[in-house]
Design a protein around this nucleic acid. Structure first.
Length: 419
DNA sequence: TCTGGGGTCCTAGGGCGA
DNA sequence: TCTGTCGCCCTAGGACCC
């Protein structure tokens, strides 16, 4: 049996933990640069603010309805997530952390447990210990546990926020209730096509012939169909090293100069290299991209990317930044206003199994240097040690006008209680 | 004026060597 | 030497997730 544990309106709930007066009040959380709405509390959803809405188009809705608006605070969300996951890990034989706010639990050989009661217990313990409300869905496949979770979330009073699909009647009832576009694995494109064919619910989807699903939705769609029929096709996945690591940003304003882009690309490269060293990997290729603001139809548009194959695997900030700048010089075109750029490191291999090349190799001195840089930066707590090609006085900034304190990860921002 | 960031997997189609 | 076929590898693009 699988249980899917999902934190309710996670980012909004995190903001509430340290601001209890916000309970029952509408909250939205914005993306980086305060651009889009990326999380809404239930109260905020009632005002018709869609996911991904452009924040500036809803300013009036926010003020008219006293909606509490926050910039995203990943230090806080990451730490709260770790607390929830650590706790969940103590409550099941196996856990797969699926995202910042979701985890699958697997109960095998636990037939003696009443899983409905156990799910309710998990809800109580996590909510009480962390302040984060959660919902639990339980079923014999992962996709059905997702469905069960939707039921638990929609009917918290009836289900006590935990729902167990343990009979075929319950499975069919839940599938007939769930709109096809809300099924895990069916995105916008497929939902549109299915609806045009009169497929409205998850149940309708399971009534399609296998060969049609295979032909039109690939093996992924067919696997999903079987999962919804109660035939397990997905198992727990073990965490493995990432295959790609990306650092990409939109800019607060448009950049036109090569030097500005060069500085940004260098900094993104350094961040990627740090992430690589943290997971003890090297990369063998880089992708560098830049593009103008696609929303501004009045401006000339340009967008390009380039893949740089590296002559040797490396995780040195200096080397990765050097190759990235080389790539940038090949794709940069003057006369455009750039809004976004990024670096993605690819073809990742473990640090300790690198092949020595006959002609060109990573500079062995860099390893020691990087080690010192990482340790200095970690001791200082901010990224003070930089490459000279990065801006020494950060001239760029993310728009974060409504950022809450990092209550749990910075002593200077810890919660204060006035008595 | 102002529209996020970071991932995964699958398939089609072309290049290329056997 | 030319041509056809097969399978492998690579890439771009599409679809999905949070």
């Amino acid at each position: 049996m699988f249980a899917l544990v999902d934190c309710n309106n996670f980012y909004a709930s995190c903001e509430r933990v340290f601001r209890p007066e916000l309970r029952g009040k509408p909250i939205v959380v914005l993306s980086n640069n305060d651009g889009c709405v990326i999380a809404r509390s239930n109260e905020a959803k009632k005002f018709g603010i869609p996911m991904g809405a452009a924040a500036y188009q809803y300013e009036k809705t926010f003020t008219d309805n006293n909606i509490n608006v926050f910039s995203s605070n990943y230090a806080l969300y990451g730490d709260m997530s770790a607390r929830v996951m650590d706790l969940l890990a103590t409550m099941a034989p196996e856990i797969e952390v699926y995202s910042i706010d979701e985890a699958f639990l697997k109960f095998e050989g636990c037939d003696f447990i009443n899983l409905q009661d156990y799910g309710e217990m998990i809800v109580k313990v996590v909510t009480k210990s962390t302040g984060i409300p959660i919902s639990v869905g339980i079923a014999n496949t992962k996709a059905l546990s997702k469905v069960a979770n939707k039921v638990a979330k929609k009917f918290p009073d009836k289900t006590h926020s935990s729902y167990f699909i343990d009979t075929d009647e319950k499975r069919i009832k839940a599938l007939k209730w769930l709109p096809v576009e809300d099924v895990w694995g069916i995105g916008g494109r497929h939902a549109k096509r299915l609806k045009a064919l009169g497929i409205k619910t998850a149940y309708d989807f399971t009534q399609l012939p296998d060969h049609w699903v295979r032909k039109n939705m690939s093996v992924v769609g067919l696997r999903l169909k079987h999962e919804l029929e109660g035939k397990p096709r997905l198992d727990m996945e073990i965490a493995k090293a990432k295959q790609n690591i990306a650092t990409t940003r939109s800019f607060d304003k448009n950049y036109t100069e090569y030097d500005q882009l060069r500085e940004r690309i260098t900094t993104f490269s350094v961040t990627c290299a740090e992430k690589l060293r943290r997971q003890k990997s090297c990369c063998n290729a880089l992708l560098i991209f830049l593009h103008t603001n696609g929303f501004r139809s009045d401006l000339p548009q340009y967008s390009r990317n380039i893949v740089m194959k590296l002559p040797f695997p490396t995780n040195s900030s200096i080397e990765i930044a050097k190759f990235a700048r080389e790539g940038l010089s090949l794709i940069f075109k003057k006369g455009y206003q750039y809004k976004k750029a990024g670096v993605i490191v690819m073809d990742i291999t473990p640090e300790d199994t690198n092949q020595i090349s006959m002609f060109e190799n990573t500079n062995p001195k860099h390893r020691l240097l990087m080690d010192v840089m990482d340790r200095l930066n970690s001791a200082i707590g901010q990224k003070k040690v930089k490459l000279a090609s990065q801006a020494l006085d950060r001239t760029w900034k993310m728009k974060q006008e409504r950022l809450s304190p990092r209550y749990t990860t910075r002593l200077s921002e810890i919660i204060t209680i006035h008595v």
